[in-house]
């Protein structure tokens, strides 16, 4: 009997109805780090297998997008704070691509992986986290695309000290993409319409963000509304860092930071709330 009693605390796993909203098991996530990396690898490799151009697609997509937008703003003569139009658009597009692909892909976490989730347990957050990381890799590759343009236009641009803040900007962007994405993916389980909403919602959100126009273009009375968009300061600081022009302040950066943390926490909470029982609803 003594042996039995001493065993009582040895349980390695306890499965309970709800594991508490705030009990977030980081250690378990860490144990599955190999799986995260393998998913990153899978996403990265598998996408371009059996394509003619392979990883070249990482370059082609932003290049074509940039070409079209550059043509557009050249025609309607959008002022770009004296920054060469191509560079202006390319920085915006690359940054926006990262955010939108994070958001769109993570928002599909539950529905897109239902067949795996239905068979085997691993921390569900593994999937969206691996998406964020694999997108980060394509973002890094796309950033390489900036280099030849930065060199070609070196006379017209003035990189600033804010270059040091770029990793922080990317982190904020990743947090917002992940937070919003898993929030949406948690809600899509019940309200499937959100999936459709997100597809064109992201498209619309791009026009509400200074991607193909500078924030300085917005007239005074709309500025307050425009500054509600937490993505704007990130794009503006990024441009300021690399090209030397951007409209932002400490307050707006702080606002973006708080928003990023807030949305990530909210997303994780929602995600945790549904991950244990979503298989019953999907």
């Amino acid at each position: 009997m003594a042996a039995l009693d001493s065993n009582r605390e040895d349980w390695t796993q306890v499965i309970e109805p709800t594991e508490g909203l705030f009990k977030f098991n980081l250690r378990e996530l860490w144990r599955y780090r190999d799986l995260i990396l393998l998913f990153v690898r899978r996403d990265f490799i598998a996408v371009y297998k059996q394509t003619v151009l392979g990883p070249l697609w990482h370059f082609l997509q932003p290049l074509f997008t940039t070409a079209v937008y550059t043509l557009f703003i050249s025609i309607v003569k959008v002022p770009t704070d004296e920054i060469p139009r191509i560079l202006f658009i390319l920085t915006g597009v690359v940054l926006w691509n990262y955010f939108s692909s994070c958001l769109i892909k993570t928002s599909n976490t539950f529905i897109g992986n239902a067949s795996i989730f239905g068979k085997v347990y691993f921390p569900r957050l593994v999937i969206p986290i691996s998406v964020i990381i694999s997108n980060l890799m394509s973002f890094a590759i796309q950033c390489l695309l900036l280099i030849p343009f930065l060199i070609y236009y070196r006379q017209n641009i003035h990189p600033t000290i804010y270059i040091l803040a770029i990793p922080f900007l990317i982190l904020l962007l990743a947090m917002m993409g992940l937070g919003l994405g898993i929030l949406v993916s948690s809600l899509t389980i019940k309200y499937r319409d959100l999936n459709y909403l997100i597809a064109f919602g992201v498209q619309l959100a791009m026009y509400a963000t200074p991607v193909i126009y500078p924030l300085s273009l917005i007239p005074g009375r709309f500025k307050a509304i425009a500054s509600l968009n937490p993505l704007s300061p990130i794009v503006e600081v990024f441009r300021c860092a690399l090209l030397g022009k951007g409209t932002f302040s400490i307050e707006t950066i702080l606002y973006s930071t708080v928003f990023a943390f807030g949305i990530l926490i909210l997303g994780v909470l929602m995600f945790r709330r549904v991950e244990n029982s979503f298989m019953d609803t999907v």
């Binding site: 349980w11 390695t12 796993q13 306890v14 499965i15 309970e16 109805p17 085997v120």
Partner: peptide, 25 residues
């Protein structure tokens, strides 16, 4: 499904020692 943690029980508890795997997977 509950034992393999695919879905959570509505009430009650399962305690386990060690790793669980399934030949179903």
């Amino acid at each position: 499904k509950i034992l393999s943690r695919v879905t959570a029980p509505t009430t009650g508890k399962v305690k386990m020692k060690g790793r669980l795997a399934s030949l179903l997977e």
